[in-house]
Design a protein around this nucleic acid. Structure first.
Lengths: 185, 185
DNA sequence: AGTGTGTGCGGCAAATTGCCGCATGGTTGT
DNA sequence: ACAACCATGCGGCAATTTGCCGCACACACT
């Protein structure tokens, strides 16, 4: 695991590579993880991530599934090839069972659907093995809140178009409309 | 209860253990897999499966996620402990990302949602390595589906405890109970 | 025995939803 | 300008889902 110190000699913090094309998301997460004691680097493309990984040799990584050009799964493969000890958490906006299965097979230690908070990611890093013994993290998000966050995200991605969002989300426009007038629960 | 005290003489067919509480399903699948050259055994509970596995040492297994009493996941763990070379395909009526991730981490070679046909299972046994080329879907989950996945995840993290999960999720136990009996929308 | 907790399920009122309709405003192509 | 199309906001009402009560049973711990 501790192989080549390279440039970063006197930094005993574990290094973390965040790969996500959403710059804002990177910044927010970077801040949160720095506060939790990581030496954080960010990348927004597969190429950037690889370049960064070669120099900083991250012990931890969070990778978004959907990256410009290629799939984040490739990155899982490459990072694991670089250092099989790297702990990788896959993040995704649009979770699917197929990609989850592949990510784990490729060596990701966990797979989380956005929205996630930093504590969930921390917990995921710890859970390297499949288990019966489950370390419990308190889940701040109620189902109502989760739904609200998700709706906001999809709505935003569709530029606020309620009709389109309702169709995508497979719910009735009237219902979406009504939900939007209410506060997150 | 002890159904097959059969003595295994020389049998060069690969042995397959089918674990599912649905007897009819077992029979149908057993027939299909026998035709494909397997030496098939069936079990309907975790205990039966373990007993069977100890005598017949299956090289292949299909395990239903939902078994009376315990989850099929622990069976994955035990079978792998018995023989780490066993190829296990997880089957489930209600596929969720959480259980898929757990199953793969525990060593299952694949995870399939019912209904499946025998050929899919055959293909799954072959696919031991991860594949970074799988297409990523850009289609968001429906809100109902998202809720379902989230519930599954929290439920899993709380070892299937419905009362605790309901409290964390800030929903009524009765409502959670009712949701769990329904299909992911 | 007694206490605490989890589970499954029935019943019923309250809340939410699905689904209709209609009027309005914005955009696009003719 | 006009029609065609789409998104929006909202009212009404039936169907479904929920919250919340209850009860019985099982299991663990004292």
């Amino acid at each position: 695991m501790t192989m080549l110190p390279m440039i970063e000699v006197d930094d005993d913090r574990p290094s973390l590579l965040i790969v996500d094309d959403d710059v804002t998301f990177c910044e927010v997460l970077a801040k949160a993880m720095t506060k939790r004691g990581f030496n954080v680097h960010c990348a927004h493309t597969v190429e950037q991530a690889l370049a960064c990984a070669e120099t900083c040799m991250p012990e931890y990584a969070t990778i978004d599934l959907r990256l410009p050009g290629a799939s984040g799964l490739i990155l899982v493969e490459k990072l694991k090839a670089l250092d099989s000890g790297t702990r990788i958490v896959m993040l995704t906006g649009y979770a699917s069972i197929t990609t989850a299965v592949e990510a784990i097979k490729l060596g990701a230690t966990h797979y989380l659907a956005k929205p996630v908070d930093a504590d969930e990611i921390m917990a995921a890093f710890e859970r390297t093995t499949g288990d019966a013994e489950v370390p419990i993290s308190t889940h701040p998000l109620s189902v109502g809140r989760l739904e609200w966050e998700y709706i906001q995200r999809v709505l935003n991605e569709n530029k606020g178009n309620i009709s389109v969002t309702a169709r995508i989300l497979n719910m009735h426009r009237r219902t979406l409309q009504r939900k939007l007038t209410k506060n997150p629960r």
